[in-house]
Design a protein around this nucleic acid. Structure first.
Lengths: 106, 106
DNA sequence: TATATTTGCAACCTTAAGGTTGCGCAGTTA
DNA sequence: TAACTGCGCAACCTTAAGGTTGCAAATATA
């Protein structure tokens, strides 16, 4: 079944993989060395990340280098966009509050 | 135990709750009416969202209005920051590719 | 060719996530 | 006060997530 990116990034190991991959493409073995778990466990995470297209495989002989797919990560950014105006509103309210306090001190 | 925000938004129902709440504070009952599940199920989701401070309760008599906490949502933005330069790089590479194609056509 | 390495796939176990029902408590209203 | 309404908490069930071990396929190397 098709995984969604929100479920994919909910796991801390998968987020760590993404952080590594974003800097440099790595093989499953190379990734597994970074974590305290078996290679197969890491491979499961890779599978999830690949299914939702957050990473892309590049075959090189018997090795597979997994690349970070920044474009897909932007979907997350797009989702966040609907809340951006809420940040601004709440910040403006904070500004108002601070102004009020400032006025009262006068 | 303390929930983390990534786990919190991995559930589609919780994302829907956040979207609703971002527009207007709601009571658990009001939320439950929007979804095809029991009020108690929704309450469980509320608990998760509240534990990681993505929403905040406001008691009003026997009703509880849950508000959206935009400030906490910014943590996602902070996490995404580490990938922003990847987007730019990949876009630049796309630009390079397009330029190359353009050159070849000449 | 024989052997070692890299990987994916399948079976299995344990635990937690998401749902349900049932209850009790506090606030509202008759 | 009595009845009703809105919530949270606890117990329970089912399923899926994350981990393990074992094995087979494909490539690299002696």
């Amino acid at each position: 079944m098709k995984q969604d990116i929100f479920q994919a990034i909910s796991d801390p190991t998968r987020r760590a993989i993404l952080t590594l991959i974003a800097i440099q493409a790595l093989t499953p073995n190379a990734m597994a060395e970074k974590f305290d778990m078996t290679r197969q466990a890491v491979s499961k995470h890779i599978k999830v990340l690949q299914e939702c297209e957050l990473i892309k495989p590049e075959q090189s002989g018997r090795e597979i280098y997994y690349h970070f797919n920044a474009k897909k990560m932007q979907e997350f950014d797009n989702w966040l966009a609907q809340f951006r105006q809420n940040w601004e509103i709440q910040f403006n309210q904070l500004d108002d509050l601070l102004s009020t306090i400032k006025e009262q001190k006068k």
